[in-house]
Computed example of a mutant assay.
Amino acid sequence: MTAALPIRQVEKPWGKDVLPAPFKAPEGARIGEIWFEPPAGLPDLLVKYIFTSEKLSVQVHPTDAQTEAKGLGRQGKEECWLIVDAEPGATLGIGFDAPIGADKMREASLDGSIEELMTWHEVVPGDFFYIPANTVHAIGVGVSLIEVQQNSDITYRLYDYGRPRELHLDDGMAVAKGEVYDLAHWHKRVPVEGSAVLVDGPLFLLDQVHGRPTAEIAARYPDALLIIPREGMFTVAGDSIAPGGCALAKSLDLVEFPEDGVCLLARACAG
């Protein structure tokens, strides 16, 4: 069984026909997402790339506790974004400029002013943002990013710029926090080279590794994990994995790390 995860290219009207290296869109296609099918050995995490030529909808996700309370099982969604490419002036909308109540948020969602009330953060490659559940967010134009998330497809859409898609205002207002995003706590600048802890739980772990993992990082990954190459060719259980791919390793011992390679390591936490 190959270690490399199957790749699914997803066409979206808001996607891009010219993708950052090493990706290439098929002729005439606008690729919005590249998904790596979650492996049976690590089903709780989903890794994907997102590429935008238009603003994505303003949305919010519930917590595990909120979906369990609705009888949906553990379907909460927390996620994080690492910017890999950005056009000049590209932004992410996360949280609000000032606290906002549920009634005002609903009204702003209906009349479109929610976009103006949100905080839009200008981004460059290497920006990293953790997005807790209940955080109102949107991805702007000209952004390419890696998303690592809880493997859930529950999204409550609050505003969609007049596109003819369903909104989920009752469900969204029940979980959305009209708060200012804690940039100092949830944002990091990730160097092109060097190792760094990006997410330290409680739902999943994510680390950038340059060369071989340090003992401290290796201790965080005692069993199955995902390998997401950024620079250099990696070998996982005998399979070569290049940047733009993702692989399941049953243990770190089965991964050959190039001396100058850079990759992300990820695993879900027990829960």
Rank of each mutant, 00 (worst) to 15 (best):
R230K: 15
D253M: 08
W35C: 05
I100Q: 10
F23A: 02
E116C: 05
E68T: 09
T2H: 14
F23E: 03
E87I: 07
L226H: 09
E33A: 07
S109F: 10
R212G: 11
V262S: 06
I228D: 01
P20W: 13
V190M: 06
G126A: 02
V18W: 10
G126I: 07
A242C: 09
D260H: 14
L183T: 14
P125Y: 13
G271H: 11
D85L: 10
L198G: 01
W14P: 00
Y156V: 07
D260Y: 08
P38R: 05
P229N: 09
E33H: 07
M233Q: 13
A218I: 05
G28A: 10
I217H: 03
P125M: 11
A270C: 02
A266M: 08
G172A: 03
L72S: 03
G271T: 08
C246S: 08
C246W: 01
L265M: 07
W14K: 09
N151K: 08
F23I: 09
M118D: 01
D170Q: 08
A174L: 05
G76D: 04
L248F: 06
D103W: 06
V136P: 00
Y156T: 07
I31W: 11
G140S: 10
P243A: 09
N151C: 08
P39A: 11
C269M: 14
V84N: 05
P88M: 11
T235K: 12
K177C: 12
F23P: 00
E33N: 11
I114V: 14
T91W: 05
L265Q: 01
I7H: 12
V192W: 13
D160S: 04
L183R: 14
P39S: 10
S109A: 15
E107R: 13
I31G: 02
D103H: 13
R106C: 05
W14F: 08
M118G: 01
G15D: 04
E79A: 06
Y130M: 12
V190H: 04
